[in-house]
């Protein structure tokens, strides 16, 4: 289990994490969803003991990461965002080194390396220098190094960045297997669909703050049944705002400027004609219209006021 209480982390005047609190339970996958620069990696670094928190408390299992760093770190497997491996040596040698770094030794280390190589599907190329591997194979090995010592807590920092769809599916399956085996998994991503497909519980993070947190169902409830309608063209924000509140008060403006308008409304397909009519009366010129069904993304937009982009 991971418990994070009121975590703050600053670098000089820059606040990277601004008071986040959550708990990740054993056997479940907890997702931290947010754009680049939201504070996900800093949070993982603090939990992994790479950086010392400015304030707040982090407990891994029963150990405090600051006071009992060595014991807390022994509970964790970390899969960093980078492919943190030694390119010149083989997959087996990488596993031996990182397994040894987590306390494995002798025959146990060798047997576990073979087991992991089979699990990640690299046993046939175990002795090859990994600089000859594809991006997906390296990512799998990166994951393998994190689970060598069979840690009860697994931290994964955007482990699928830049890999092919097939390797991504394989990797996500491996993560699910870990959770099914009772491991506490903390998973950061900026891929909405990945979070939706994988995580049992999600925290939406931006600017170092958690905006919403809960299971996927709980978060969907937060969005309600409203659809999102995005319109591009030429608008006068003030006139549009007045016209909508006078004629279609149930329509909620999410974003508005002279070139784009984002609104949230019930049954967008049925009410779209009315919306376009009101906008036409304001003198707006429309170029493009798109309707999105309620999703985690609509919640993200609602919570942070912006779309989730890479």
């Amino acid at each position: 289990m991971i418990t994070v209480e009121d975590l703050h982390k600053s670098y000089g005047d820059t606040v990277a994490v601004d008071g986040i609190t959550f708990t990740a339970e054993p056997g479940r996958i907890f997702g931290l969803l947010g754009p680049n620069g939201a504070g996900k990696t800093t949070s993982i670094d603090c939990i992994a003991g790479v950086h010392k928190p400015t304030s707040g408390r982090i407990t891994v299992g029963e150990f405090d990461i600051v006071r009992n760093a060595r014991q807390a770190k022994a509970q964790m497997g970390v899969v960093p965002q980078e492919v943190a491996l030694y390119e010149e040596v083989s997959a087996r040698e990488n596993l031996h080194f990182w397994g040894g770094a987590c306390g494995l030794k002798g025959a146990t280390l060798k047997e576990r390396a073979t087991e992991v190589l089979e699990l990640i599907g690299l046993i046939d190329r175990a002795e090859e220098a990994i600089k000859k591997y594809s991006g997906g194979m390296k990512r799998r090995l990166n994951f393998g190094c994190g689970i060598m010592h069979q840690p009860p807590v697994l931290l994964l920092d955007e482990p699928t960045v830049g890999i092919d769809p097939q390797s991504r599916v394989r990797l996500l399956d491996l993560v699910r297997e870990q959770a099914a085996a009772g491991v506490t998994v903390l998973y950061t991503t900026h891929y909405m669909e990945e979070a939706e497909a994988l995580c049992d519980e999600i925290a939406i993070i931006d600017h170092g703050t958690i905006h919403a947190q809960g299971s996927l169902e709980e978060l969907r409830t937060l969005v309600g049944e409203k659809d999102m309608v995005r319109l591009t063209g030429t608008f006068d924000p003030g006139t549009v705002s007045r016209a909508l509140s006078d004629n279609l008060p149930e329509v909620e403006i999410m974003e508005s400027d002279e070139e784009a308008l984002l609104v949230s409304m019930m049954d967008a397909a049925g009410n779209l004609v009315a919306l376009l009519g009101v906008l036409h009366d304001t003198g707006a010129v429309l170029r493009e219209t798109s309707v999105r069904r309620p999703s985690l993304e609509t919640l993200f937009i609602k919570m942070t006021g912006k779309e989730l982009r890479e």
Binding site: G49, V50, A74, V78, P80, A84, Y86, W98, A101, G103
Partner: peptide
């Protein structure tokens, strides 16, 4: 540092000085 192995080394139970 570029590869991220130092960062990973900081997350293992042994102090960085041995690495």
């Amino acid at each position: 540092r570029r590869a991220g192995t130092l960062r990973r080394g900081l997350s293992v139970p042994f102090p960085m000085r041995w690495m």
